[in-house]
Each structure stands twice: as C-alpha cells, then as structure tokens.
C-alpha cells in the first residue's frame, strides 16, 4: 500500500510536470487523465475506493469534454507573450515547487495525519496548478491549471472531510470548470499575437 502511494505520487508529479512542459493539447489531455488516476489513488488513502472512484470518473469525463471541445475548435495561433517560454525555465520552477512541496508536506502530513506521499502529492498539485494559471493567458491552459490546483486541494481535503455530498458538489464544480474550458474553446481564436 505504501509503495503504491509513492507510485501514485510519482505518477501525479510526472503528469503535472508534463502538462506544464508540453504545449500540445493532446498530450495535455492524456497527462490530465493520468493525473486523475494518481489523484484517485491519493484520495483513496483517506476515502473508500468507491467514493474515491468519483474523482477518477469525474476526471476522465473532464478529459473527454475538453478533448471533444478541442477537436471541434479551430487551432490556436496565439503565442504566449508574458513569461519566459523556455523549457529550462519551467524545469527550474518545477524543481523549486518540488522543494517547497517537500518542505511543507512534512508538517501538513503530521498535522492532518496523512501519509507523506499523499501530503506531498496534494501540495505539489496545488503548486503546479497555481503556477500554470499564473504563466499562461490561454483559456484552455488556465482551466487545466485550475483543475490541477483543485485536484491537489481535493487530495488534502479528503483527509478531513468525507461527506459524499461535498464530494458530489466538488465533482460538479470540476465538471463546470471543464465546461467553462470547453466554452472558451468554442470561441473564435485570435489570429494575431496578443
């Protein structure tokens, strides 16, 4: 069980890092689906498997909704103009986030009685998601960042709240965010650089 927690942590870390590094939406949606698999296992450390499966089902529904919306959308030609675009920069930030998550995760795990990989996984997802929303102006990537940050929060919140109603409402909020992302994708893209 402990080893599987570490595997799930590794999976979420790899998926969240991949989302940050890759620009292709197909890769992003595939990695988001993998991230929800990791999320399911991390939440399962606190909840029953049947309740934790809600996260997985919701997550994969989100990926399906975003994927379908992307297939029907015109290709985005806008280039990000605000932040450094280099992969090295992003790798450096991921390293920084990993350090901060490791530092904070120990205290959080002790406080909430969570296994260390679960606390680290939660903090890592929150930090990666927030970073993602902070360095992009592309609506699809903003929504993916928000979904990642909410996933991290859900890992931590699962340790303190096991209400099925909260789980259901959070799933609805996640689906609503995905619908907002799909709605944004249905807008005509900007042809020139913003």
């Amino acid at each position: 069980m402990v080893i599987v927690n570490w595997v799930a942590f590794g999976l979420t870390f790899a998926a969240a890092s991949g989302i940050l590094l890759r620009r292709d939406w197909r890769w992003n949606i595939g990695l988001l689906a993998a991230q929800y698999l990791g999320l399911f296992w991390l939440v399962q450390a606190s909840w029953s498997t049947s309740l934790a499966a809600v996260k997985l089902v919701t997550g994969w529904m989100i990926c399906a909704a975003l994927g379908i919306a992307h297939i029907n959308a015109e290709e985005e030609t806008t280039v990000e103009s605000s932040w450094p675009q280099g992969r090295l920069f992003r790798l450096a930030v991921i390293g920084l986030i990993l350090t901060v998550a490791f530092a904070g995760g120990v205290g959080l795990g002790d406080w909430l009685g969570m296994p260390l990989p679960v606390a680290w996984g939660g903090l890592l997802l929150i930090s990666m998601g927030l970073l993602h929303t902070g360095i992009t102006v592309q609506p699809f990537r903003v929504v993916v960042g928000l979904l990642t940050a909410l996933s991290g929060f859900e890992v931590i919140y699962a340790a303190v709240e096991s209400s099925a109603l909260v789980a259901g409402l959070l799933a609805l909020i996640n689906l609503g965010l995905a619908l907002a992302g799909a709605y944004f994708l249905s807008h005509p893209p900007e042809k020139e650089q913003s």
């Binding site: 927030l130 903003v142 928000l146 931590i156 919140y157 909260v166 807008h187």
Partner: peptide, 30 residues
C-alpha cells in the same frame, strides 16, 4: 464572455481568483 469574442485576461483572472477562494473557505470551515 459572449460566444463571438475570445475571453480576455480579466475574465480568466476573475475565474482564477474566485475559484482559488473556494478551497480556502472550505478548509477554514473544517
């Protein structure tokens, strides 16, 4: 954000800030 117009930074930031607020309120409730 009407369907004929690409969403701008303001709408995205509105969504980001208001969404990030939710976990804080939920956790402080506990």
């Amino acid at each position: 954000s009407p369907p004929d117009k690409k969403p701008g930074k303001g709408i995205l930031r509105f969504l980001i800030y208001q969404t990030i607020a939710m976990p804080f309120i939920l956790f402080s409730g506990w």
